[in-house]
Computed example of a mutant assay.
Amino acid sequence: MRHSAYVFDAYGTLFDVHAAVRRHAEDIGPDSQALSEIWRAKQLEYSWVRTLMGAYADFWELTEQALDFAFHKVPSADPALRDRLLDSYWHLDCYPEVPAVLKALKADGARLAILSNGSPAMLEAAVHSAALDNVIDEVFSVDSIKRFKTDPSVYDLVTTGWRLYPAAVSFQSSNRWDIAGATKFGFRTVWINRTGQPDEYRDMPPGLILPSLEGLLIAG
């Protein structure tokens, strides 16, 4: 067995955050990619700012607010598509390798969890839509503590909930800032750098960098 506990970020790591816009790209027009990137960037920004302010709002509310901002920034996109895009966000595609990798780790005896900014309802819908119900042992949502990543209390949800030392957890995320927070907390971290982004937060390096989750089955 490779590790006893594997914990995964959800959005961008297991589930493709740009899938919602991509499904409606033809209706949105040539600026669909810009809309998607702004939507994602503001969604994250709102989570960080609200945690610093101590003014929590659940991730679905932030997702709605971020999309509204994106429509204002991309006037070529029709706001009438708002409901369709939000509905699609409840059923995001998972990345192609995800089911097979998680099943292989599960078959090896590992415990698998999601640790996410997402609200419980969002995560339940995403897991069910991707048919991952039978491989994910537990879903940890920040909603239980009303603070977003990278607050250390978020990562402590796993160690407290599963009664583990941080070093016993292999934590996977595609978000470099998330990897920095998890590394500082003491997790063994794996940065899933799907798009070949340059490294940052060099004083909090990941234990491993992989282009996809498939490398977990090789790297151990």
Rank of each mutant, 00 (worst) to 15 (best):
A126C: 12
H128S: 13
H128L: 08
H128I: 01
H128P: 01
S129D: 13
A130D: 10
A130R: 04
A130W: 04
A130H: 12
A131V: 05
A131M: 10
L132C: 02
L132R: 00
D133N: 08
N134F: 03
N134M: 09
V135Y: 04
V135N: 00
V135P: 02
V135E: 01
V135M: 04
V135Q: 01
I136D: 04
I136C: 06
I136A: 02
D137P: 02
D137C: 07
D137W: 08
E138V: 12
E138C: 02
V139I: 04
V139N: 00
V139L: 00
V139W: 01
V139E: 01
F140G: 00
F140L: 00
F140N: 01
S141Y: 08
S141W: 07
S141H: 07
V142S: 09
D143M: 07
S144E: 15
I145C: 06
I145H: 04
I145Q: 05
K146W: 12
R147F: 08
R147C: 12
R147W: 09
F148V: 09
F148T: 12
F148H: 15
K149I: 09
T150D: 08
D151Q: 10
D151R: 12
D151L: 02
P152Q: 13
P152K: 15
P152I: 11
P152V: 10
P152A: 09
P152M: 14
S153K: 15
S153N: 12
S153F: 10
V154E: 06
V154C: 15
Y155P: 06
Y155R: 06
Y155H: 01
Y155N: 05
Y155I: 06
D156L: 03
D156H: 12
D156W: 02
L157W: 09
L157K: 11
L157Q: 12
L157S: 11
V158H: 09
V158K: 12
T159Y: 02
T159I: 07
T159M: 05
T159V: 08
T159L: 01
T160I: 08
T160H: 14
W162I: 10
R163V: 07
L164A: 04
L164W: 00
L164F: 00
L164I: 03
Y165L: 14
Y165S: 15
P166I: 07
P166E: 05
P166D: 08
P166Y: 08
P166H: 06
A167H: 14
A167L: 09
A167E: 13
A168V: 11
A168E: 15
V169C: 01
V169W: 07
V169N: 03
V169E: 04
V169I: 07
S170F: 10
S170G: 09
F171T: 04
F171G: 07
F171L: 05
Q172E: 10
Q172T: 03
Q172A: 10
